[in-house]
Design a protein around this nucleic acid. Structure first.
Length: 467
RNA sequence: GGCGGGGUAGCCAAGUGGUAAGGCAGGGCUCUGCAAAAGCCUCAUCCGUCGGUUCGAUUCCGACCCUCGCCUCCA
């Protein structure tokens, strides 16, 4: 089934078709983290969304090149480097590592290319030079180089592709107005920021003097380097549409004269407990905060993947508890299938895969995709309970699950190693049961629960599960 | 002020011009000595409010109310 995705450029759902004449290779760029702190749950929604897009493309048979930049030079970073009296590399390195670790915890496939802004200063300078030569960039009296929206539009280019902009009626932000920058026009944005003493050691030489890159230029420089002047997909959070993505388009198309990106995708934000995340409300979570509360990466991933990417999602702790229970239902079912299937292999059951693919192809309707999974779980459980599931059928069901999980990426909970103390208690309980000492058996069950283990009696014997 | 999303059961969340997927919680049942984060079943006469179009609207149109986002750093 053809994959359909919403394209912010056209504000409509379109069939996805790669630029590659062979219709095989897909270039995808996702705006990555600014490494000045640990990423929060809202950031993670976007990165899990990007992973969903990538996995869906791979599931659909495309050969994806996934690029995600690491922004490691920027105002907030410089400020903190100065405050903490550390070096840029040391400071950003710490958060970059944490970010990549967390990305893995959330089951995201690692991007193939992860360029750092500081590793592409030469490319950035070259791109700015091109813009200066083409007359759409200028150096102001303050030494900084700016992109001229007026000149850009003057050559017939379109500024405001991702959203309707009425530049004349746009409110000049107070911040911009009180800015010391000497731009020709308020809408113009910095490509190269001239050195100021507060920048400390963070500076590079350029044809315009010492300084550092502006915020948007790195993405243009690095995406063009990794994926070419025109590529298939660019994604990010919805807040990035303007000005960041709009400016990326302007810089890139201003420099190359070619269309920059064919298909733009934007993920909506999330609320936490119905409110905008903020540290003062106490609803500001990093992945680490949630792990400290006992939740796992796959549970967080599941929850983030239950809602459509273009809808605001309400992330709640209650929902996260529900995620735990919902996943254990799948784990239970898949575990039973594995027991039945043994070493048998079979082609994936097409029913689940078909329904799942159809849901996904419809602009990533993950809610419907999960519905197909849970319906399958119920049907499968019925067959297991009836003892009507043959070994080949179990193997086929298992293969189908693995196929859909190549997109969902929640895997199956790995069976925790049972410590000697726990299995000893389980055996003691068995002995008590045999001698009909149910009081003692129940006491042991409580003890196990207190130690974090649930014991279940099944027809095939006892089952220990870590809470 | 400009632009753009939303309002569907206790909570989260799909969807459709012909009468509401799925998950969690709740209720019932089965297995069990009793249980279970085991399994099955059940759970919205109704989709913000008021009008309109229609044989029929939650779905289309209009008005209104509420809410969120972008316009300034932000996923």
């Amino acid at each position: 089934m053809a994959l359909k995705l919403f394209n912010t450029l056209t504000r409509s759902i379109q069939e996805f078709a790669p630029l590659d004449p062979q219709k095989k290779k897909v270039g995808m760029y996702c705006c990555g983290p600014t490494v000045y702190d640990f990423a929060h749950i809202g950031n993670w929604r976007t990165f899990v969304f990007a992973d969903l897009v990538r996995r869906t493309l791979e599931f659909s048979g495309y050969d994806v090149k996934h690029v995600m930049n690491i922004t490691d030079v920027e105002d907030k970073i410089i400020k903190r480097v100065r405050e903490q009296k550390t070096s840029l590399r040391e400071f950003t390195g710490k958060f970059e590592t944490a970010f990549l670790d967390d990305l893995k915890v959330l089951g995201c496939r690692e991007p193939h290319v992860k360029p750092r802004a500081t590793g592409h200063i030469a490319e950035i300078i070259a791109l700015i030079e091109k813009l200066v030569v083409r007359g759409v960039a200028y150096q102001a009296a303050d030494g900084s180089v700016y992109f001229s929206i007026g000149k850009y539009r003057g050559c017939g280019c379109h500024y405001g592709q991702l959203l309707k902009l009425n530049l004349d009626e746009m409110r000049a932000g107070e911040r911009v107005a009180s800015d010391e920058y000497e731009k020709e026009s308020i809408a113009d944005f910095a490509l190269w920021k001239a050195y100021v003493p507060d920048d400390g050691e963070v500076t590079w030489d350029s044809p315009w003097g010492k300084g550092r890159p502006g915020w948007h230029i790195e993405c243009s420089a690095m995406s063009i380097k990794a994926l070419g002047e025109t590529f298939d997909l660019h994604l990010g959070g919805e807040d990035l549409k303007f000005p960041h993505h709009e400016d990326e388009i302007a810089q890139s198309e201003g420099a190359t004269g070619k269309p920059f990106v064919k298909h733009w995708l934007h993920g909506a934000h999330l609320l936490v407990e119905g409110k905008k995340m903020s540290k003062s409300l106490g609803n500001f979570f990093t992945l680490r905060d949630l792990q400290a509360k006992g939740f796992t990466g796959r549970e967080v991933r599941y929850l983030l993947l239950t809602a459509h990417y273009r809808e605001t999602f309400n992330f709640t702790l209650e929902g996260l508890h529900g995620a735990k229970t919902a996943l254990s239902r799948i784990d239970e079912c898949v575990g039973k299938l594995r027991d039945i299937a043994g070493n048998a292999t079979a082609a994936p059951d097409s029913n689940l895969v078909q329904q799942f693919s159809a849901a996904l192809a419809d602009d990533l309707n993950v809610s419907a995709a999960w519905a197909s999974v849970f319906e399958w779980v119920r049907e499968t459980n019925k067959c297991i309970a009836d003892n009507t599931l043959s070994i080949p059928a179990a193997a086929s069901a298992l293969a189908a699950w693995e196929k859909v999980d190549s997109v969902l990426g929640v895997g199956v909970k790995t069976e925790a190693e049972v410590p000697a103390e726990i299995s000893a208690l389980a055996e003691a309980r068995m002995a008590a049961k045999k001698s009909k000492d149910f009081q003692r058996a129940d006491a042991i069950r409580e003890e196990l629960k207190a130690k974090g283990w649930v014991i279940e009696d099944t027809p095939k014997g006892i089952k220990l599960k870590k809470i």
